[in-house]
């Protein structure tokens, strides 16, 4: 994945850069709005990470200039404002995304992968499934070795999301956002309890669980094939 990072906080920029490089992605960091825009117009990026408040040129202005140049690289905004403005929400409707600081690197990675996948559209053959699995979307059933397991609507959405993000660390807040459409932290640990039910229904006795919880980070789906 080729990622452009424009962030004037060099410490945060460096952390994001390291994270992406360590994960084997090609990333470049720019620390001003102007240099960021130049890089955005010159390079062939799969996805861009833009801070909203930047010296010289804001993240919004960079995107505006990019879109005027017909560059439709998806963008993820980083904002320090917890109360996300209409403008960011509006932009996120246009296929882009946003994250409020502080954020989890795992969540940034998951969102970047989701954006780049949407951009490259390599997603038409359906997700890869563990051996012996078959999905019955209309019935919301998983057929495991010929035996049908019925899922509740929310369990089904969660499973589909995990399947689409195999081997990625998905944070609670990302899952709440994408599966429950909740962008705040409810006092209930609904993600964990739904995941618990999925494990009971789908994991085979004796075999390792498909849903691994990394404390303090999030959850990962693995096929174990």
């Amino acid at each position: 994945m080729k990622v452009l990072i424009v962030e004037d906080d060099t410490e945060l920029g460096r952390q994001v850069l390291d994270e992406l490089s360590n994960a084997g992605h090609e990333a470049q960091l720019e620390i001003t709005g102007t240099s960021g825009l130049e890089a955005a117009l010159r390079g062939n990026w799969e996805v861009a990470v833009l801070d909203v408040t930047l010296p010289e040129l804001s993240g919004f202005e960079i995107v505006k200039a990019m879109r005027e140049e017909k560059i439709d690289t998806p963008v993820i905004f980083l904002t320090a404002k917890s109360d996300v403005s209409d403008r960011i929400r509006g932009l996120s409707l246009g296929g882009d995304d946003y994250l409020t600081k502080p954020f989890s690197m795992d969540e940034l990675m998951a969102r970047l992968l989701a954006l780049s996948r949407r951009y490259s559209q390599v997603h038409d053959s359906g997700p890869a499934l563990p051996r012996g699995w078959r999905l019955e979307p209309l019935l919301r059933e998983v057929v495991i070795d010929g035996e049908a397991v019925a899922l509740q609507p929310r369990e089904w959405s969660l499973l589909r999301f995990f399947l689409d993000h195999e081997n990625e660390v998905l944070t609670n807040s990302f899952l709440l956002d994408r599966v429950w459409d909740i962008q705040f932290d409810p006092g209930t640990n609904v993600v964990n309890s739904t995941l618990c039910r999925l494990r009971k229904k789908l994991d085979q006795p004796g075999a390792p669980s498909h849903f691994e919880t990394l404390r303090g980070r999030g959850h990962v789906f693995r096929r174990h094939d």
Binding site: R154, P186, G187, T188, V190, S193, C196
Partner: peptide
């Protein structure tokens, strides 16, 4: 309600 039913059980 559904969000909280699991917590209620716990």
């Amino acid at each position: 309600f559904e969000l909280y039913s699991a917590s209620a059980e716990e």
